[in-house]
Each structure stands twice: as structure tokens, then as C-alpha cells.
Amino acid sequence: MDWALLLDKTILIVIIFAVSLGIAAYSTYGERKIAAFLQDRVGPDRAGPFGLLQPIADGVKMFTKEEIIPNASDKFLFIVGPCIFMMTALMTSAIIPWGKSFNFGGHEFGLQVADLNVGLLYLFAVISIGGYGIMIGGWASNNKFALLGALRAASQMISYELAMGMSIVALLLINNSLSLREIVDGQAGDGNVWNVVRQPIGFLIFLICAFAECNRAPFDLPESESELIGGYHTEFSSMKLGLFLFAEYINMFISSAIIASLYFGGYHFPGIDSLDLPQNIAAIVSIAVLFAKILFFIFFFMWVRWTLPRFRYDQLMNLGWKILIPLSIVNVLVTGAWITFFK
């Protein structure tokens, strides 16, 4: 066992964990500010300057609310549900390359927890397990609205995973690798462009599926409050509700990071190599570039939420099965033909 490696990875995991939680907390603030901006309101402005302490106030509120576990619920699974949801939300960040490596006096400090050679498949495995958190939580509540929300979430996730997988297949054909770092590096350097240019339709499909997998509007049917009260988290209160809501923002952050890495060059930007920066400064710049892209996509998630109305359930299923899946299969075929005949 290499202790230096173990220490490196532990430090990195703790940092990523803290950053994920911090970004998720301030996403809730950002969400309300952007909603206010789009609806011509002021938004939260009471706690601290510009309302910047609002996430902390929300956190204190969540923790101090009364903890209610319904009598007729399955008490063990009722607690396990939100825990699984939160855990899977945090697990995906392990494969994302956050930037170029640092060099502290000859000691390389890489910014990726695990460079799996099956990285993208790991991503899919974790996403598909994330659905269990909602399903278990919804079922254990012993409430018909929660159960309906859970079933909706599960079927929505299964349906959109297929199209998402097919859009990734086309990406793999171009990049020849399942490792996220190799995909990111394949988009930089001479003659290489971002994957969004090479795979515009694949990107569109992936983006739509990412919205559906995160249960974000316009696909937030599992919790659609106008028909299902609160959907799968109807019975949850206090910090267990907080975990569900918080994990949604972490999911959004991680999906933004993955979209940025897969289709928008990750921590690269055109001309980063011609600047000829010292290694540590280049690493900082690359992190900043990645986070700029991530923040843009988080903003995009919110922008869409406050612009588009919610889909009807049959519309959601039609879009998934009858439009996105055939489209993604055609995309794979076209990509394959292009590689066979023009490369």
C-alpha cells in the first residue's frame, strides 16, 4: 500500500466533498436569485449582505425542524432512502478530472480520485443506483402520493438511461476510450475540437436526459406538487427532506461537470497550451476554466426550470421512447458510418 497515494486521495476526496456541499448550498441561493431575476422580483435579501447567508439560515431551519417518522411507515427504509440518494449523488464525483495535476517540489498531485478504464460505465452504474433512494424512500412512506412519485421517478430514470447510453456510445466511437480523462484530453491539442462540435445531436440528447435523470423541471414529475403534493418526499420532514433536496443540487453540479467534461473540453480551453504557464499556475487556471463551465451549466439548469412549464407524463414517455431513443440510434449509425468511410 502506497501511503503517499492514500494520503493524496484522502485529501482530494475531502476537498471535493466540501466543494460539492458548498456549491450545492449556494446553488439553492442561486436558484432563488435567478428565479427572482426571471420573474422580476428581488429574491432572498434578508440574511446578510444580498441575502448571502440564506443557505446557512436554511440549513439551521432544516436541522431544527421536528423529525417526523410516520407510524405506518417502514422506519428503517424510511431513513435509508434519503441516505442512499445522497450517497450516490456524492459518489459520481470520483471519476471527474478536475484539472491538470499540481507539482509540489517534485511530488505530483493529480486532481482525479480514480481514473477508471471503465469510467463512463461507472457513471451509469451509480446513476442507475441513485433511483433506489427515491424508490425506497417513496415506498417506505406508506403514502399513495409518495408511492406514485417513486414509481414515476423509477420509470422515468429507466426510460431516459437508454437514450443517454446510446448518446454516449456515439461519443465513445469518436474518442475510443471510456476513461473520462482520456476523453477530456482528446478534446485538446492540435486538430482536435470540443465534442459538442463533433456530436451536436448526441450532446442535445445527453443534455435532455441529464435533466430527466436529475428530476429537474421540465421533467420534475416525480415531485410535481400540483398533482402529487410533494411526490416521493411528501412524508419527509426536517433534514431527511433536506437530504433529498440537497442531493438534487449535488446531482445538478455533478451533471454539469460531466456535461462540461464530455462535450465542452473539461478543464481545457482553446489555446491553453500556447500560453506556456508554469505547472502549478496552469493547474489553477484549468480548475478555474472547468468551474466556469460548470457554473454556466448550473445556471442553464435553473434558466430552463424557470422558463419551461412541466411536461405531462405521457408527453415525457413519448419524448423518451419515441423520439430520443430512435434519434440516438440514428446518431450512432451516422457516427459509425462517418468513421468507417471518412477516417
Binding site: 452504474a125 442507475s128 443506483i129 433506489y132 424508490m135 423509477a154 420509470s155 430514470m157 429507466i158 438511461e161
Partner: peptide
């Protein structure tokens, strides 16, 4: 994991 834990068992749970 994807096929059994992620897809088939979701249907079972369903």
C-alpha cells in the same frame, strides 16, 4: 451492476 442492480432489480422493486 448496471444490468442487474441498476435495471433488472428496479423492475423487481417496481
Amino acid at each position: 451492476l448496471i444490468v442487474y442492480a441498476g435495471a433488472i432489480m428496479v423492475l423487481f422493486l417496481f
